[in-house]
Design a binder for these strands. Structure first.
Lengths: 138, 138
DNA sequence: GGTAATTGGTCACTAATCGTAAGTATTGGA
DNA sequence: TCCAATACTTACGATTAGTGACCAATTACC
């Protein structure tokens, strides 16, 4: 198996460039990729991006589609994704306000990887539930 | 684009079986798959599973490999993954104690999906950092 | 004219989760 | 005797998630 993670690399320079001959690794505490991993490996991120895969959506649409998310958390999630270049926020100067969110090309590269996780969660419910019951019974 | 998420499905019965003719959806607040998604779409889960992809590892090995994780958080992450059937914990009755963690077949099905996320984070550092700088500058 | 509805938020607050630093148990070895 | 080693616990503080109230500005309705 390919060693994507450079498991043997324990140190990291203070400046933000990879060590010579090595790539960044999320396993290094100070690597910027760890922040990115934390952002994309996140349930709300996965849900937002998968919903936005169908095209631009308004704030209220997202809030309805994501059944149970609070306005505050949705706002924060969207702002973080916008900041990291994964979506664009477009506010129209209308009353009542209208704001649309749309994936960028960078954001679209996450659709399929995150859809895989979503499908995994949906398809392995019986196995996970069974394992959980077995664990709790002992 | 395939509608993996049954976006139109807003309701969910109290009993835990899918509505007739429909599959579970992580978008439904009460769907068990949402709990699973929260577990697997998680930075520590992604890192633990990707490290365990190389074979069984001891607690201390994982802690070293995951540079920066605390013992408590590693313990909790491992216990949750064990409970959901993704890894097996084997404790040897020795002094000092030795405990090994190994992926189950179910856990191994997550290696590749999570490795994709890890690679995404590592490969898109420049784009993300640039987007972040641009956002913060306006 | 007065009042409610609409939309995309913000604010203050509480609850839950994450993370840190220290401690525990056991035994072999200096 | 005291320390090292290992895999946790526990107590605590910090960060994050979630809730409910409120807001601005216009249109629709009575």
């Amino acid at each position: 198996m390919t060693n994507y993670l450079n498991v043997t690399n324990g140190t990291m320079p203070k400046t933000f460039s990879p060590p010579p001959g090595q790539d960044w690794s999320v396993l290094s505490r100070t690597c910027p990729s760890r922040t990115s991993l934390a952002r994309i490996a996140n349930k709300w991120t996965a849900m937002v991006i998968t919903v936005l895969a169908d095209g631009p959506q308004r704030f209220g649409d997202l809030r309805t589609a994501l059944d149970g998310i609070s306005g505050k958390v949705l706002t924060e999630t969207l702002r973080d994704l916008e900041r990291d270049g994964m979506l664009i926020r477009t506010a129209y100067a209308e009353i009542p306000p209208r704001v649309e969110y749309e994936l960028t090309p960078l954001g679209r590269t996450l659709i399929e990887p995150l859809a895989v996780l979503v499908r995994w969660a949906e398809q392995h419910i019986p196995e996970v539930l069974a394992a959980r019951d077995a664990y709790d019974d002992r």
